[in-house]
């Protein structure tokens, strides 16, 4: 079972500066639970992709950053939420190279590869919620 431990932070994602702040916060939480350098880099990069998606496609939103525990392992769990236009075809959006905008189309599929856990829910006209986690 996965249980949240300790404090959790909700950060708003409204500007490009917020994307930078999210990266810094995720890095510091990853360090805190003792993730190795490569794992830190992966989760921070995934966070950067998703935060930018939230900003560019979701019209802004927020991320909840939690430290979670599962048996002897600790993890960083990130929940990105926006009230943007949503994604009509998630399967298509998850494909490498698919992009609805100016990006390279690697945001979603790349973030999934860089995470140990990945889930996405989206309703057109309502918004999108993406949860990722990386474990020690």
């Amino acid at each position: 079972m996965t249980v949240p431990t300790g404090r959790d932070d909700v950060m708003s994602i409204r500007t490009a500066d917020d994307v930078v702040r999210v990266r810094q916060e995720v890095r510091s939480r990853a360090l805190e639970i003792g993730l190795g350098l490569v794992d830190q880099t992966k989760i921070v990069t995934a966070a950067s992709e998703l935060a930018r998606n939230t900003l560019d496609y979701g019209g802004g939103g927020e991320v909840r950053i939690e430290i979670v525990q599962n048996g002897g392992r600790r993890g960083v769990r990130l929940t990105f939420e926006d009230n943007g236009p949503g994604i009509a075809d998630i399967e298509l959006a998850m494909k490498d190279g698919y992009s609805s905008g100016k990006g390279l189309g690697l945001g979603l599929s790349g973030a999934r590869r860089l995470s140990n856990e990945f889930s996405i829910e989206s309703t057109p006209g309502v918004g999108t919620r993406i949860v990722i986690a990386r474990w020690t």
Partner: peptide, 14 residues
């Protein structure tokens, strides 16, 4: 490029 960045970039698909 830092080694951890190289590993991550390839996994990202870039």
């Amino acid at each position: 490029m830092q080694p951890a960045v190289a590993i991550t970039l390839v996994e990202l698909g870039l």
